[in-house]
Amino acid sequence: MRALNVSKPWGLDELKIVETPDPKPGPGEVLVRMRAVSLNYRDLMMVHGMYGRAPATDGPIIPFSDGCGVIEAVGEGVTRVAPGDRVATMFFQGWLSGPPTLEKALTALGAPIPGAGRELAVFSQEGVSKVPDFLTDQQVATLPCAALTAWRALFEDADLSPGDTVVLQGTGGVSIFGLQFAKAAGMRTLITSSSDAKLERAQALGADHLVNYRQVPEWSQPVRQATSGVGADFIMEVGGQGTIEQSLKAVRIGGHIAIIGVVAQGGSGINPAVLIGNAAKMQGVFVGSRDMFENMCQAIELHRIMPVVDKVFPWTEVREAFEAMRAGEHFGKIVLTF
């Protein structure tokens, strides 16, 4: 079989396709023929040697956590799935339920566990989950990280109700899933972007309020206006230091800011006095458990939520896919197909 490898000195130039022996499942394991993987910002950082809790390594590593495939064979004692089942890979292979722990966090695909960027892969039966039949392989591949991160932030960590106001930053995978989930739950949504064209696409998905942050850098003001001065109940914070100041100004007293990413540059960071003054909660979010994933899939099936796949590349064109991500060309998710 063929697999993607990247190693020190890292970078897109070091991302290669290599030939390796076909793996075989052992006891409690399943062999999956991969059909699609989706890109996350984490994957781009990993390829550049900039991400991971695992001990430092010179590589090689097999990237990608988010995949869809079909079970080809199972090892002794496997009961969760059977040959022919279509499954998604779990981001954390060992986080099945309950709260996060360091031990669970050290079971992420890509690093330290070899990822889904290969034609054939062996996983623990506990690290895969069946998925809604109505979704395509490409759509399923978007679920393990981006969708689950948005789901956990909205429905596991925050205390939200229909009619609450949710702010989504940008139009990447997590924010678009956040928009879709929030609308399905009856919440009012406000989304920001630097592109009017992307804002129009977000409006077509049901966004109630649109803000171009290039034209309105102080985007906390239209959030306040949309909420009659009260502020947002929830903010999906993906920018980090470059956007957190505006999030703190936009959130209501006692509101919730979910810290998802660090993609924005500049900014002045966190002013503790502002956080104290609005009594808001800030919580870091790194994906979720298998139980959360399966609850999310039930909601996706019930509401017939269609993940937004914006760009599709053959997996052999992985560099081009990463360059599209780095350029911020996408709306929703970028997917590689096998």
Rank of each mutant, 00 (worst) to 15 (best):
P60I: 10
T57N: 12
E72F: 01
R35D: 11
A73G: 11
Y51S: 04
C68Y: 01
W95N: 03
L44R: 05
M34R: 00
F91R: 03
I62D: 00
M45A: 13
D43Q: 11
T57D: 09
I71D: 05
F64H: 11
D13G: 05
R42S: 04
N40P: 02
V18K: 14
R53C: 14
M46K: 07
G49T: 10
V30I: 07
I61F: 07
D43C: 13
V81E: 04
G28V: 08
R53D: 15
R80C: 07
Q93W: 06
G77N: 08
P23F: 07
L39E: 05
R53T: 13
R35P: 05
M45G: 02
G26I: 11
D58N: 13
P63C: 13
D13C: 01
T79E: 11
M50Y: 00
V30D: 03
V81N: 05
V70E: 15
C68I: 05
V81A: 07
V78R: 00
M46A: 14
A56Y: 09
V18F: 10
A36I: 08
P83H: 00
Y41I: 15
Y51I: 09
G75S: 08
T89K: 03
G67K: 07
A88V: 14
T20A: 08
R53Y: 15
G49E: 04
E76C: 06
A73Q: 12
G49R: 03
V37I: 15
P27C: 00
T79P: 02
S65W: 01
P63L: 12
K24E: 15
L44M: 14
A88E: 07
V74R: 02
Y41N: 14
E14Y: 06
L31A: 07
K16M: 02
T79A: 15
L12Q: 14
G28F: 12
T20V: 15
G77A: 11
I71P: 02
D22Q: 02
I61M: 14
G67V: 06
G69R: 10
A54S: 13
G75M: 10
V18Q: 09
V30N: 02
G26V: 05
D43N: 13
P21L: 14
R42P: 01
P63V: 15
P27V: 00
Q93H: 11
A88W: 01
E72L: 10
H48K: 12
M34C: 03
P27S: 01
L31Q: 04
L12A: 15
G49L: 08
D66N: 08
G26Q: 09
M45Q: 09
I17H: 04
M46N: 08
R42H: 06
R86S: 09
A54G: 13
L31V: 10
R35Y: 10
D66P: 07
L15R: 13
L44W: 06
F64M: 12
L39K: 06
E29T: 06
G59W: 00
Y51P: 02
S65K: 02
P25K: 01
A73P: 08
G69A: 12
G84K: 04
P23S: 11
A73W: 01
G59Q: 03
P27F: 04
A54F: 07
G59L: 05
A82K: 12
P63A: 14
D58L: 12
T20H: 01
V78G: 01
D85P: 08
N40G: 07
F64N: 04
Y51C: 07
V30R: 01
A54E: 06
P27K: 00
R33M: 13
M45K: 08
V32T: 05
F64I: 14
